[in-house]
Structure formats: C-alpha cells, structure tokens
Design a protein around this nucleic acid. Structure first.
Lengths: 119, 119
DNA sequence: CTGAATCCTTGTAGATACTG
DNA sequence: CAGTATCTACAAGGATTCAG
C-alpha cells in the first residue's frame, strides 16, 4: 500500500496490501483487540491478521500493548504516523466513491467489444 | 492499487500494483509508445508492461491507439478517468515525501529492540 | 517496433489445527 | 483470548524466446 510514490527513488512502504488498509480503518476510532479486528473483517484468518499487524507494527503504524496476563489482553492502536496515513487513504476512498461507477462502465464497454475487435 | 477504499462494499479496482502507478505517472504529460514506457522503468519487462497496460485499458484508465502498420506504432494515453486517478496518487506521493523518513526511523527502532521488549 | 508465448520462482493468502 | 504452525493454492513478477 502506498509503496512510496511512483517515482524513481520511491520509498518501499509496501506492507502487504489487501487487508492492511482495512485494518487501519478499523483502528480509526479506537484501539482494538485481536479478535475485535477479526470480527468485522470476515474471511480474515488469524494468521493473516497476525502477519499484517506485525508488519504495521514494524513500520510504526500501529502500537501493540499488552495488558495483564490472564486472560491475555492485547490492544492495537494507531500511532500518529499510522493516523497520518488515514488522509491519503481517505482520498483514495473518495476517488473510489466518485469514479466507481465509471469504472464499472469502462469494464463493461471493454468486454462488449474492445478486445476482440468486432468487425 | 486503490483497491477501492477499505470499506465493506469496496469496489475492486485492483490492477496489479507495483508498476501500474508508475506507468500512469509516465503517461502524465503525454501519450507514450510501448518502448518509451519501458525506458524510464528499468526492470519492467515487456510481458509485465503488456499485462499492466491491458489491465489499465480494461479498466478505462488508458487508451490504446494504433497508427499505421509498418513499422508498428502504438500509443498509450491517459483517459479522463485515468487522469482523475493522478490526484489520489499525488496525495500518496506527498505523504511518502513527508513521512518517509519517519518510516525509516520507525523501522530502525523496531529492529533495534521493539520486538523483544527491552523493557 | 510492438508485443505474444512459455516457463520458472516467489510471495502472500487461505484453510485448518494447535498452543500458552 | 491471542496467537503459532503447516500446508496448499494461486497470482504476479521475471527471464527468455519468438512473431507480425
């Protein structure tokens, strides 16, 4: 995600995609626990969530806090850096909302005849 | 890229990433021919460029125009939809420039001791 | 020049089951 | 509850070669 601009000297920010953005959004309003994150994100397996969180943690986007011991209680929260990422993310979301339909139409048009030159 | 927001009803805009963004940027100022796109993007093989362009074309982000026949002359250009995508892209680039260093520091900090809690 | 075809390698996701 | 451990599957990237 946001693999650092599309320029020659791009900073490799790649974190894995597909789930990371959604995880960040889930953390937007409040810190969440492991399974709190899983619930809304159906189809996200613990393995992948674990990997994604570790990646986000490694890059300084989320913090991991362990409370007590029995039963385990771990909370994930956005760091200021992670929070700053929400802005470009929101812009991307806005684009998606604005142009999503156009996109669908473009694809339909392509399927209809763009490829196998109807002629 | 921009797999359509991080929300439940996300529109799958995924085009493959890694190269697509850079290709779009290369087309920003003017239409380009196949090998004109390859030159600045070292390490981009014809196969991948071809696949990426087809994906972009399918989604209505770029147009493909064939001129004459011998020798082959094909130009790729941004469509209005593709051009609209430059905005969120620019925001992501800006983020990268602003926070790239922070990111590097966060990673260094993590490697240094974030993992095995130095307490 | 513009690409298509083929083969190979790798990375990441998903399924499933298990542990502290 | 919060993960880890395996294993499989598939997609994407890369290298190379060939063709119109």
């Amino acid at each position: 995600m946001f693999d650092g601009c599309a320029e020659p000297t791009s900073i490799p920010v790649r974190v894995g995609d597909k789930w990371t953005a959604q995880i960040l959004v889930c953390l937007k309003d409040a810190p969440r626990r492991f399974n709190e994150l899983r619930r809304p994100l159906k189809r996200l397996t613990p393995k992948v969530l674990s990997e994604s969180l570790r990646s986000l943690e490694r890059n300084g986007f989320v913090s991991r806090t362990v409370y007590g011991e029995q039963p385990p209680h771990v909370e994930y929260a956005l760091t200021p850096l992670g929070r700053s990422l929400l802005e470009p993310l929101a812009v991307a979301c806005a684009w998606s909302r604005e142009h999503g339909e156009e996109l669908t139409r473009a694809r339909a048009a392509y399927e209809a005849g763009g490829r196998t030159a109807p002629e």
